[in-house]
Design a protein around this nucleic acid. Structure first.
Length: 476
RNA sequence: CGGGACGUAGCGCAGUCUGGUCAGCGCACCUGCCUUGGGAGCAGGGGGCCGGCGGUUCAAAUCCGCCCGUCCCGACCA
């Protein structure tokens, strides 16, 4: 294996794959377009799951599981939905050595089978709201794949809810968008812009789609989570009605929302550096690694004992590991654990032992401090918080520095071509302008921000009036 | 599906133009010694259908044809 990691400035996408391979997050599988998520990568997914699952349950949702296989006819019931997803579906045509009567689609998303079931479960307004989430894998036959960001099969969670009124559905959609924003910012330390997708970019079958958009270090945008208000589209397609308080039959209102293993890609590309992965402490499966430094044959035991004492004094929730392998030198281990993104490293050698000290090194800045033994517990707690905050601040600063207010098309094109980032510009709302911009620059509308100031301006492309600025950018 | 690069040991590659002297290097791995404060050193060792099939030739990793696969850059997308 190549020793180093390609520098970000040299080739960002190589850097990205290098980091994943060196940190052993994932590997290419024998199946084209599919990856194997290795223990280090899966641990990140488990962290994500644990935080999100709690938030889903706090907001009243329950987990369930629906089949992987969906009858082809289900998909066809919602016109926009089938148009959007059919081209990227894998279809099972044979089973048990026989051709199937009806082909089964491997779920690209589960709205159709969920709503086929919701029809059975929803009779009355008393059955509403129905708040379901499922953790699962889905399959989308993408043309080009990229580890974590776009693979043929990926892991995600998909929430599916049913409501009695349009207002409730909209409220739910926004509530879950907010959950995603909280997760992204407070746990993953990734600043995001919540907003609405344009008609062109919305989910196939939705009334409208909300998104959180993040900016990666190479100036490209990444959609990090989506929440859809499906209106009555799926209720209509699957004939899901309920009897209201007045005894009348009404169509149900729906939402769906999802966040995937793609978030791990966002984590890598937001915080990583030329040494490898940098993990926000709240996402790091391992918070602290202790590295003993041995001198000569004697005294190994004393050093390890010293480390054990310190480790035992740490707060329970802090995960640590002592890397006492003798076959590797300290320098080798430093590199190894930095590559893996472990937030804090503690070095303990004979010199430290003598003084009753340790060397504490933070991963994000690689800053070292000498510290008395009895100060370690407190310092580690403090550092973990500080790293968490400072990673977010650093990413936020990066985004601010790479968000340009642009008012003329010439500049717009130059900025997209030369520096990337978010372009904060006016748009008239016409899909034709959106298409033209995409054609000219490859930039798309990332979102129409939820929080925006009213400002009179003119569309950056066509000059027609616009009342607010929206975000454009080149996306993954 | 268009454009590019590539397929030789677990990984990264050289060798291909100019056929033979070609099964090679670095890392990783194994054994031993020695070492440990930013990827240590020495010695020894194991490991190969040179992507597949076919052709040319006395002779093919090398030339020709077809196929398969992968990665990167676009169109599609969480």
């Amino acid at each position: 294996m190549k020793k180093g990691i390609t520098k970000r400035s040299e080739d960002f996408s190589r850097w990205y794959t290098d980091v994943i391979m060196k940190a052993r997050l994932a590997d290419y599988s024998p199946v084209k377009g599919c990856m194997v998520i290795r223990p280090n990568g899966y641990a990140l997914w488990e962290k994500m799951q644990s935080y999100l699952d709690i938030m889903f349950k706090e907001t009243g949702h329950e987990n369930a599981y629906f089949p992987l296989l969906i009858p082809e006819s289900f998909l066809e019931k919602e016109a926009e939905h089938v148009e959007g997803f059919a081209p990227e579906c894998a279809v099972v045509t044979h089973g048990g050595g026989k051709k199937l009567e009806e082909p089964l689609v491997i779920r690209p998303t589960s709205e159709t089978i969920v709503w086929a079931m919701f029809k059975k479960w929803i009779m009355s307004y008393r059955d509403l709201p129905l708040l379901i989430n499922q953790w699962c894998n889905v399959l989308r036959w993408e043309m080009r794949t990229r580890l974590f960001l776009r693979t043929t099969e990926f892991l995600w969670q998909e929430g599916h809810t049913a409501h009695a009124t349009a207002e409730e559905a909209e409220e739910e959609t926004l509530q879950m968008l907010n959950v995603y924003q909280t997760f992204a910012q407070e746990y993953a330390a990734i600043p995001v812009i919540p907003g609405r997708k344009s008609e062109r970019e919305k989910f196939a079958g939705a009334l409208h789609t909300y998104t959180i958009e993040a900016l990666m270090q190479d100036g490209k945008a990444l959609q990090a989570g989506t929440s859809h208000n499906l209106g009555q589209n799926f209720a209509r397609a699957f004939d899901v009605t309920f009897q209201d308080k007045n005894g009348e039959q009404q169509l149900v209102y729906a939402t769906s929302w999802g966040m995937s293993t793609r978030m791990i890609g966002a984590l890598i590309m937001t915080h990583g550096d030329d040494q490898g992965l940098v993990l926000p402490p709240k996402m790091a499966p391992l918070s602290v690694v202790f590295i003993p430094i041995f001198k000569g044959k004697e005294g190994h035991g004393e050093i390890l004992e010293f480390i054990d004492q310190i480790a035992a004094s740490l707060d329970r929730d802090i995960t640590y590991r002592v890397d006492a392998r003798e076959e590797y030198t300290p320098g080798w281990k430093f590199n190894e654990w930095e590559r893996a993104g472990v937030p804090i490293r503690v070095e303990v050698g004979p010199r430290d032992l003598q003084r009753g000290e340790v060397v504490v090194v933070r991963r994000d800045t690689r800053e070292k401090v000498n510290l008395a033994k009895d100060k370690v517990k407190e310092k580690i707690r403090e550092l973990l918080d500080e790293i968490q905050t400072s990673l977010f601040q650093r990413a936020l600063r990066f985004r601010q520095e790479n968000t340009m207010r642009v008012d003329d098309y010439q500049t717009f094109r130059e900025v997209v071509a030369e520096q990337g980032g978010f372009l904060h510009a006016h748009w008239c709302g016409d899909p034709e302008c959106e298409d033209q911009v995409k054609q000219d620059t490859m930039a798309t509308i990332r979102c129409i921000p939820i929080e925006s100031e009213d400002e009179d301006g003119v569309c950056v492309r066509c000059g027609k009036p616009s009342g607010e600025r929206i975000y454009f950018g080149k996306a993954y």
